[in-house]
Amino acid sequence: MATNKVEPRFAEGEDAAQLGPDMQTLLQQEGWALDTDGMGVTKTFYFKSYFKAVSFVNLIASESSVKKHHPTMTVRFGSVDVHWTTHHPRGLTQKDIAMARHCDNGAGLMGAVKSGQGLKCGPGP
C-alpha cells in the first residue's frame, strides 16, 4: 500500500533547487515537519516552566516583528507549537526556513527540553 508523502510546496518565485537542501536539513536534522498541505513547517518545543515557554514566544515575536514575518503559535502549559508559512506568495519561502532556524536557536537559549521532559499540568510529586 502506498503512503501519501507530503512534499514541500515552495512559493512562486522561490528557487526550489536552492531551498530544497535547506528544507531537507530542517526536516531531517532539526525535527521540523511539513504541515498537511506542504506549504508550511511545524514543530513543538518543550520547556520546564510556563515562564520559559512564554519567554520563548516573546523571543520569536520580537524577531518576527523585525522581519515582518509572523508564525502561528500555540502556548500550552509546558510547550509551544510553532507553524511557519508564507501567505503571499503562498507556500514555503526562505523566510520560513530562516525563522525556523531562529526558533531552534532561541529554544536553546530558553532551555528547551525533549518531549516528555517538559512541565506537565497537574499536582506535583
Rank of each mutant, 00 (worst) to 15 (best):
T36D: 15
D37S: 14
L26V: 10
S64D: 06
T3L: 04
H102G: 00
G38T: 08
E30C: 14
S65M: 13
T25Y: 07
M23P: 03
M99G: 00
Q94A: 13
A61K: 12
T25R: 15
S62A: 14
R76S: 11
S64E: 09
D81S: 10
V57Y: 00
G91Q: 06
G20Q: 03
D15S: 12
K5Y: 02
Q29E: 14
C121Y: 08
R76W: 04
D22A: 15
G111N: 07
A11S: 11
L119C: 09
Q24H: 13
V41C: 05
T42L: 07
L19S: 10
E14S: 12
G116P: 06
F56D: 00
T74Y: 03
G108Q: 14
E14L: 06
G40H: 01
L92Q: 04
Q24K: 15
G111E: 07
R76V: 05
D81M: 12
Y46C: 12
A107T: 01
D37T: 14
P71N: 03
F51P: 03
V6Q: 08
T72V: 04
V66F: 12
D104N: 10
A107W: 06
L27C: 11
A53Y: 02
G122D: 07
D81G: 02
I97C: 09
A61T: 12
D81P: 03
V113C: 12
E63Y: 15
W84N: 00
L26Q: 01
H83K: 04
N105P: 01
F56A: 00
K52F: 02
E30V: 03
I97H: 08
E12G: 10
V57G: 01
D37R: 11
A17V: 07
G124A: 09
F47W: 07
V80C: 02
D81W: 05
K52I: 02
G13A: 11
K68P: 04
D22L: 15
Q94K: 15
K68G: 13
V66Q: 13
R101A: 07
D15K: 08
K68R: 14
A112K: 11
V82L: 01
R76P: 00
A2G: 15
T44K: 06
S55L: 07
